[in-house]
Design a protein around this nucleic acid. Sequence first.
DNA 1: TGCCATACCTCGATTCTCGATGCATCGATT
DNA 2: AATCGATGCATCGAGAATCGAGGTATGGCA
Lengths: 113, 113
Amino acid sequence: MLSKDLVAASSRPLVLTLLAAGESYGYELIRKVRELSGGRLEWTEGTLYPVLHRLEAEKIIASRWDAAAGTGRKRKYYQITATGRSALLEEQKNWQSINQILENLWTQNPPSI
Amino acid sequence: MLSKDLVAASSRPLVLTLLAAGESYGYELIRKVRELSGGRLEWTEGTLYPVLHRLEAEKIIASRWDAAAGTGRKRKYYQITATGRSALLEEQKNWQSINQILENLWTQNPPSI
DNA sequence: TGCCATACCTCGATTCTCGATGCATCGATT
DNA sequence: AATCGATGCATCGAGAATCGAGGTATGGCA
């Protein structure tokens, strides 16, 4: 079971990275993340939607309503903004700097029972 | 500036990894983390002590009071427990699985402005 | 017609965070 | 011997964050 903190820490970079690869919408993001993680990461809607709304309020992503191709069902498509792309670079840098610290320590002193 | 979430997510694995390398105490952990991160991670005492107390309540670490060598000043030394070592392995596995997802995505689709 | 998957959203009790604050000791400086 | 900064522990509580539960609506299908 993934810790709450780890899920929280990875949600922003994950959403931004996925949107950087192309626009998407809430339900699909949940599906994609479930697939990418092999089911380890199970976002609920109550988790994701507030994240999307917060990112949009920060102008890091933008949205448009559109009908799904094929069906007439409405979806809210999100795109990453220019601000969002630099935010993602920052997120990536931060993630990698912490990862580097941990990996260095683990290399020097491999955890074992 | 590192995000709150990232700081939170890394605090448990960091503390456990440092303690797995040898016992330590609060003030020293703060210093070590500051050095390891080149000043990017600045834990305050209000941040670290609750983490230590929670880990101790979960029996993942244990503590003993002792006088510092040289001075008579009292310190609370923390050690990782056997339970803690398996918890650390789990933390490591979880961290690396998320890191793998992100790195894969970033390799396939490198973030850029 | 009923039902499930899709698709969006908000609410609020519970939980968490961390800056502020407090206490005490040691060593060095004035 | 008084002061001060660094060391070292700890708690507190206003404010913030979380996310399961619940609400609404549509399309496709048997």
